[in-house]
Amino acid sequence: MKFAVIVFPGSNCDVDMYHAVKDELGAEVEYVWHDRKSLDKFDGILLPGGFSYGDYLRSGAIARFSNVMKEVVKAAEAGKPVLGVCNGFQILLEAGLLPGAMKRNESLKFICRSVELQVENNKTMFSSAYESNEVITIPIAHGEGNYYCDEETLAKLKANNQIVFTYSGSNPNGSLADIAGIINEKGNVLGMMPHPERAVDELLGGADGLKLFQSIVKQWREAHVVNA
């Protein structure tokens, strides 16, 4: 399975993402610059955190119009796993691949610390390696992670089990329904504010994020290498 780490001007978690996939997960991975016109050779797409285009106008607002995003939409439509972390989540929202929008944190502060997440849905290709309702520790680092959507959308997210991760205990940013990560209806596009790629090694304070990547690979193997 081959992953692409999409790099925009201003991405700054791309190296962590690359490291997590290559060194900790042990899968193939390549950096892909934002002007790339094809993602055909990749099996999974990773949109890392950072401040693409300086977060000008709104987080993710400019990045969504880059060349590579057309390909990301195509990959999503083709059913490939697409993971957006932090700024990557914001880009997926702006691109309309996930519903809702991001507001500034309720405290108006940039928050950088580890938080506890509850796995709300472990029946997705991103969370199957977790136990149901498992509480995991993953770092967050954002100023705009205050997820918002209208009531109708929220009801739909709940009804379809699209809320994959919620903040457990205290909600750091004021997000609606404690939402930390949501998946699309089809189940192959996940956006989350916490950084699983920063929690892949006990040396770095925890490895709870690794299972997320392992889930993706597991699902892909089951689908593609079943007869190998």
């Binding site: 106008l57 607002a61 119009f65 702006e94 519903p99 929008a101 918002y148 959507c149």
Partner: peptide
């Protein structure tokens, strides 16, 4: 399309 995010 760009200047405003009509969701919010």
């Amino acid at each position: 399309r760009l200047l405003a995010n009509v969701v919010i």
